[in-house]
Amino acid sequence: MERLPSWIRQHLAALRALLVLTVVTGIIYPLVATGVAQALFNGNANGSIVQKDGKDVGSSLVGQLFTDKDGNPVKKYFQSRPSAAGDGYDMESTAAGNLGPEDIVDTLAVPGAKDSEGNPDTGKQSLLTQVCARSKAVGELEGVSGARPYCTADGVGAVLKVFPAVGTPTRAVSVNQACPATPFIAEYQGVKVECGKPGEDYAAGRTVAIRGSGKAVVPADAVTASGSGLDPHISVAYADLQAGRVAKERGLTSDRVKALIRENTTGRSLGFMGEPGVNVLQLNLALDRLKG
């Protein structure tokens, strides 16, 4: 029998290899991996779903908001950290804010102006002002000082634009405080500080952040989002800060609430990586199971 040409034999061999690898890697391996996962890690393999009264209420791996329809914190629940994923913990929009420590100057909203789609101009908050505003809000919610280094009392970044950029200052503007706000400091190096005028270009000035005094009471994770925007944990310090409010709202003692925090605190990964964290969803569900 006459042998097939070599190029045909090569193509047939390639086709056989394709079929075998498709069956092995596309059918057999996925079925085996899925079967092992379902048999040994059933809960994790199915999304680590958490239930309450037989209903799915979330995942222990993904955070969620505990707010009302208007976005206000529900006071009887522990609050999660901020999220940069969509409107908050949107798994289809997981993302970081991509803002760094040098993002400290706001773009002030111009009254009456509209964007390209006809919506009112809302300006753009810098990362610093976002942190300051969150710290102020958390302080008000928890009844503690929301003050923070480099933040003004009204919750924006304490930043000046100084003119000229080099040499003796002749003008200083608190660029994150829109007029007619009173600047957070009256003078800078002998020059009266002005409020910021929306729409005015201050790019030519030298950026000066004013640290101020005092130490922040509100923990860092209460005012910053995680890299994915989906982190379900908060720090023990942030949980402890909220314990008094939650205890009061639920008619519980602070000791009882703090005991629940400890029960829902996970240790460092592998015993040495990262910091202990508190799973907010599981902690709130544990609270709901209590009487009070």
Rank of each mutant, 00 (worst) to 15 (best):
Ala186Leu: 08
Val138Phe: 13
Asp106Met: 04
Ala133Leu: 11
Ala96Pro: 13
Gly97Met: 06
Leu128His: 02
Leu127Asp: 14
Ala84Leu: 00
Arg134Asp: 10
Val166Pro: 00
Thr67Ala: 13
Tyr89Asp: 03
Pro164His: 06
Gly146Asp: 12
Ala158Gln: 03
Leu99Ala: 12
Glu142Thr: 03
Ala133Ile: 07
Thr129Asn: 09
Glu92Met: 04
Val110Leu: 11
Glu142Arg: 00
Glu102Ile: 00
Glu187Leu: 08
Met91Tyr: 00
Ala178Thr: 14
Val156Pro: 10
Arg148Gln: 13
Arg81His: 05
Leu108Glu: 13
Tyr77Lys: 07
Gly88Tyr: 10
Gly63Ala: 06
Thr182Lys: 15
Gly155Phe: 06
Pro183Trp: 15
Asp87Cys: 00
Gly139Ala: 09
Pro82Glu: 07
Pro82His: 03
Gly71Asn: 10
Asp121Arg: 07
Val105Asn: 06
Lys136Glu: 10
Thr122Glu: 15
Val173Phe: 13
Phe78Asn: 12
Cys132Val: 09
Lys75Trp: 00
Thr182Leu: 08
Asp87Gly: 15
Arg81Asn: 08
Leu108Gly: 13
Arg148Ser: 07
Arg171Leu: 01
Ala181Cys: 01
Val74Met: 10
Leu160Ser: 09
Thr107Trp: 01
Ala165Trp: 00
Pro180Leu: 07
Thr94Leu: 04
Arg148Tyr: 12
Asp121Leu: 02
Val62Ser: 03
Pro169Cys: 00
Phe163Met: 08
Thr129Ala: 06
Gly112Lys: 09
Lys114Gly: 05
Ser135Met: 02
Gln125Cys: 00
Leu65Met: 11
Ala165Arg: 12
Gln64Ala: 06
Ile185Cys: 04
Asp87His: 10
Asp68Cys: 04
Gly155His: 11
Tyr150Asp: 13
Ala113Thr: 07
Ser174Trp: 12
Thr168Met: 00
Pro180Asn: 07
Asp90Ser: 01
Ser145Asn: 12
Pro183Asn: 14
Gln177Leu: 05
Gly123Val: 06
Val138Gln: 08
Leu65Thr: 06
Leu108Met: 10
Ile185Val: 15
Ile104Pro: 04
Thr170Asn: 02
Glu102Arg: 05
Thr129Cys: 01
Pro164Glu: 06
Gly167Glu: 11
Pro101Glu: 11
Asp154Ile: 09
Pro101Trp: 07
Pro120Gly: 05
Gly63Trp: 14
Phe66Gly: 11
Lys75Arg: 13
Thr122Cys: 00
Leu127Gln: 15
Gly118Asn: 06
Gly112Ala: 06
Ala158Asn: 04
Ala147Thr: 09
Phe66Asn: 11
Asp70Cys: 00
Pro183Asp: 14
Ala85Trp: 03
Ala172Gln: 08
